[in-house]
Structure formats: structure tokens, C-alpha cells
Design a protein around this nucleic acid. Structure first.
Lengths: 160, 160
DNA sequence: GTTGAAATATATGACGT
DNA sequence: ACGTCATATATTTCAAC
């Protein structure tokens, strides 16, 4: 099974669209928005959660107000290409709370991580004391984010 | 004011930590977790929302199950450096629903965007028909995400 | 900040369509 | 699969401490 979107109807997609934007909306208001009764709406939400279409709910916080003044995108090239060492390095990398995202990517580098820290000093510490010491890091390239123009988790859901 | 984290106490931080991970937790359970009464907890949550520490709540969806098989990180270098043209291009860019994130970054390129599409064909269409036609795009470099190893919005909140 | 009580809104289950 | 209704919970507000 490549995906399971075909098993969702228009109402399911409508529910997901609302919940992506307003994760804490009440069931009564949600049911109103998707033109369904509250019990029917709640049953669908529970089904979407159960079947894994909704993986969870999160409060989106204001990074700057919470002291995170620094965001960086770091490309990483790995040296050793023995599978076991790589998975160990990746396990340690994704366990770091400063690392918000980690992707295996095509191109000159192997991985791209997004790192959020309180300031440049903390980023320097992260790179020098936590990232570089990992075994098998061949090369890194850091891009500092000067400004975030858009940050959303809302997917553009296709019509069923 | 650089940031306002100093006006938050341990309980506020505890509330934010819980809500980052469980955005739809009930006020009663949240109050239990942070060892506070429900009314006091709710008053703090409302204050954190009001003052912008919490910017909103979102359901996190499963990209693959919803037919989004393709994720790409695209670096963009701009040609013209007249402020007005640039802001127009950026406005159009961030308005595109396929663009989940857009950052002004340091380095060889000027901007980095994260793009989620249903498949490679849709990504090709996005690049060829929507991105490249924007005025002033000098050069782009696309990295395809082969695997997402970590994707979270949970910030590592400092102790007050 | 807590506790307790009351009004309101919400979530959930039973039943009928 | 949905709507209506009834019930159980939760939320919200207000008091008094």
C-alpha cells in the first residue's frame, strides 16, 4: 500500500484541514464546520487518530519569545559508510533536543538537520561539542537562518 | 526586548512542555501534570496564549498516509536585489501551499524552502511551472529527502 | 494560589432512521 | 453511516478563604 488517501472522503479531508489549522477546536464547532453532527464528527476524528492519519497534536510556540534566537540548517557529510556506525551516529543525532528535524538527502551532503538554539554561542557549542565529536562526521556546512518567512506544518491535502 | 522568557516561571515552562507534546490534553490532566489546580492552570494557559508564547495548536498529520510521498529542500538564489521586487517574489512564494517553510539564510544561496508534494511529478511541476517562472530567480538547487529521521516542533525550553 | 459549587459546554453512548 | 436525545465529563466562572 503506497498510501491510503483513497479511503478518505471529502468530509475526512475537511476535518483534517480544520484540525491542521486549529488543533484545539471543540468537537461541536468542528462538526459545524464540516456540516456533520457532533457524534459523527467525533467518531471520524477518533478513526483518523486510530488509523494514524493524525499522529498527534502540538502547541506551536513562539521561538523568539521563548529565548530561541538562533535557527540553523546544517548539512552533514558522513565519512564511514558502514551501516552500523551510521545508524549509531544517527540515533545519537536525533536524540539531541536541539535537533528539530533530520533528513537523509540527495546531493553533495548526506544529511540535513534543523537546529534551534538560544543564541550563536549555544549553536557554536552544539556544533563544536556535540556534532563534530560524533564519529564519522566528514564535513559540515552551516546556514544560519536570518529570518523565517514561513513556518507551517499544514499539508496541502488533495481532494479525494 | 530581546525575549521575554525571564517573565516565565517553572510552572509556565512545564505547561509549555506538556502542550508542545500533547496539544489536546484536557485542562484537568494538564493541571495534574504541573501540580496546580485546574483554574490556576487554565489562567496560565490563557495568559500564555494571550501574550503570544503559544501561537496556536495544530494536528500533526502523517504525510505518507495522506499521499505526500515527496519532500524537498530547495535553495534559491535571487537575481535582482531591488527590495520591492524581492518582497513581491517572497510574498508569492510563501503563499504557495506546497511551501511549508521559507527561510532567508546565509551562504551561497539566499533562501531555503521546504516543499511537500504528492510525488516527483508534482515536485517537477512545482519547480518548472511555479517556482522558476517567478521573476528574479537566478539559480536553484534541489535536495530530495530520501528519508525523514526526525520531525518535531518541540523546542528545548530553557529552565527559568 | 486553593477549594468548592454552579452554569455552561462538551463528549460519549444508546437508540432509531 | 448519520441524527437525535440523554447522560456523564469537562470546562469555565464565581465565590470565599
Amino acid at each position: 500500500m503506497v498510501n491510503s488517501i483513497s479511503s478518505l472522503d471529502r468530509t475526512d479531508i475537511a476535518i483534517l484541514r480544520v484540525l491542521q489549522a486549529e488543533g484545539r477546536i471543540s468537537n461541536v464547532e468542528l462538526s459545524d464546520r464540516v456540516h456533520l453532527s457532533p457524534p459523527a464528527t467525533l467518531a471520524r476524528v477518533r478513526r483518523l487518530e486510530q488509523e494514524g492519519y493524525i499522529s498527534g497534536y502540538a502547541a506551536m510556540l513562539n521561538r523568539e519569545k521563548l529565548g530561541h534566537d538562533n535557527l540553523a540548517l546544517i548539512e552533514i557529510a558522513l565519512e564511514l559508510h558502514q551501516y552500523e556506525r551510521i545508524t549509531e551516529v544517527l540515533d545519537r543525532l536525533v536524540a539531541m533536543p536541539e535537533v528539530l528535524e533530520c533528513y537523509h538527502v540527495t546531493g553533495e551532503y548526506d544529511y540535513m538537520i534543523k537546529v534551534s538554539t538560544v543564541n550563536n554561542r549555544a549553536l557554536d557549542h552544539f556544533i563544536a561539542k556535540r556534532l563534530i565529536p560524533l564519529p564519522g562526521i566528514a564535513r559540515i556546512h552551516t546556514s544560519i537562518v536570518l529570518k523565517a518567512l514561513k513556518q507551517t506544518t499544514e499539508l496541502d491535502l488533495p481532494e479525494p
